[in-house]
Simulated scan of single mutants.
Amino acid sequence: MKWILYILAGWSTLVASLFLASSSGEVSAQLFGSSRYTQYLIQGLVMSGLVVPIILYLYQYVYRMTGVKPNIPVYSWRRLTHFITGVLLAIALASLGFIIANFQGWIVFENWHPSEQWFVALIINILFAFFYEALPEEIGLRGMLYDVLRYKFVTWLSVLLQTLLFVSVTIAVGQIQVLVGLAPGVSINIFYIILIFCFGICLQLLRLWTGSLWTSIGFHLAYLEIMRFAISPHQYGVPPIITYHESVPGIGALISICMMIIGGIIVSLVILGAKRFIWKST
């Protein structure tokens, strides 16, 4: 039953680290009057500083349990080129969503804002999102926890169970924040649960067809920045990359989100199916 202990250890690491990281920003602001960007830096360093070394340490025991240690692990720097694959795929799918919405008359582009208005905020947020969200979540969930589940279950069930663990991490941290008197980091509702459930499946499938966690990390990071600086802007005190008029409020965000997540799932399934067909044919 070691695999259950590793699941609990990995899941607990993510929950505890996310809670401590989110709280560290508020504590630094209250005690030292830290600026928003300083809070972001502290949160990112705490999150990755806790999750990454612990998960990599646990990974060695997972390899002993499975009896298989790959020559090039899924998190290896030698697979870093797949990071670009994930980034470009997210940008391409989001762009396709905007083009379709514009062609159908659902949105009308109004203005492209010059980069000097948002570039610095974007770079800072990329660093924050990488260390606070994309890197630790992918190496923990789509990495170690999935590999432990795959040791015991078939692929489709492992993907499903990993995604449920992904959802449960967010819910658990929100509940802990409420219990200790803090405002939850996100508003938990049925729409948000469905969103992150589909997002988790998409990210796991991306790792499967490339064999690299860096694909998931790149896609995860690009998705967050597109959301924050194009689809749902004005959260960071700077103009968005692009402004557009919507025929129905929220339709631009809905189409872009669906295109990135559902499109990512479809692309991954097509590629996995093609690889399986070729493998059977040889």
Rank of each mutant, 00 (worst) to 15 (best):
W3Q: 09
I4E: 03
Y6P: 00
Y6S: 00
G10M: 00
S12R: 01
V15G: 15
L18I: 01
S24Y: 09
E26S: 08
G33T: 10
S34L: 09
M47V: 04
M47I: 07
S48T: 13
G49R: 03
Y59L: 13
Y61H: 03
Y61Q: 04
V62G: 05
V62Y: 15
V68I: 13
K69H: 11
P70E: 12
Y75D: 12
S76W: 03
W77A: 14
W77E: 07
T81G: 13
H82K: 10
V87R: 07
V87S: 03
L88P: 07
L88K: 06
G97S: 09
A101E: 10
W106N: 06
V108H: 14
N111R: 14
N111W: 01
N111G: 00
H113W: 13
P114R: 15
E116F: 13
Q117P: 00
W118Y: 12
W118Q: 01
F119E: 06
L122C: 03
L122H: 05
I126Y: 06
L127I: 14
F128K: 05
A129L: 10
Y132G: 08
A134C: 02
A134E: 10
E137K: 09
E138A: 02
I139R: 06
L149C: 04
L161P: 09
T163N: 11
S168D: 11
I171M: 11
I171A: 08
Q175C: 02
V180N: 03
G185T: 14
I194D: 02
L195F: 14
F199T: 12
C202D: 15
C202M: 15
L205G: 06
T215D: 11
E225I: 14
I231W: 11
P233A: 03
Q235L: 10
Y236T: 00
Y236N: 07
G237H: 10
I241V: 15
Y244N: 03
H245I: 03
G250K: 04
A253L: 10
L254V: 06
G263R: 11
I266E: 07
S268F: 08
S268A: 15
R276V: 02
